[in-house]
Amino acid sequence: MVVLLGAGAGLSGLGFLASAGFSARDEPSSVEAFVARRLRNFSIPRAHRDASNPVVLTPVVLARAREHFADHCASCHGNDGRGQTTLGRNLYPKAPDMQLADTQGLPDGHLFWIIKNGVRLTGMPAWGEDTPADDATTWELVHFIRHLPRLTAEELAEMRESNPRGRRDWEAAEAERRFLEGGDVAPAPPSSDAGH
């Protein structure tokens, strides 16, 4: 009887979803977030979770990681790691605010594994190859993620220069710079959609 009721409820739920549809724009429910977080933690071997960062933090390391993050990660995560980008906000689950405790509270080894191996069924891909050089780059990114809550305006301005851009974006950025400095406005101002 209970099985039949459960099956009936399940079929009703599927029928509702089939008619209403669902979208990646939605915010995951607390149940989904809980399950996804547990599944992500489950994907990391115990031996790797508590690994400490073997790369010594220096200003050069931080600068290199900052540039790498701006070029490879900021499209989804944003230069400040808050995930407030068109891609980050519309992923399912959303790109997290990495300045908050949910990310900052993770052990270094945990962050390393997520960057290197990605997270299944999310927008987070696996980065780099399984080589010492790529692992070192990933550990440098872990240092940068730790630094996110203390990013300065100067660092953010530098990162904007490293964000991937097409020719039109470069031209638009140049037109904006000229305008802000008091120069003439180009015939076709860059009032285009900045979200694409």
Partner: peptide
């Protein structure tokens, strides 16, 4: 076992939540 857990979790991940309003794109104002 891991594949089964991943599949069940995938079902939970995709089969929930109503469709919400469309959030706007970002634009530049100069």
């Amino acid at each position: 076992m891991r594949k089964a857990a991943a599949f069940l979790s995938w079902i939970a991940l995709v089969a929930a939540g109503p469709v919400s309003a469309h959030e706007g794109h970002q634009h530049k104002v100069m």
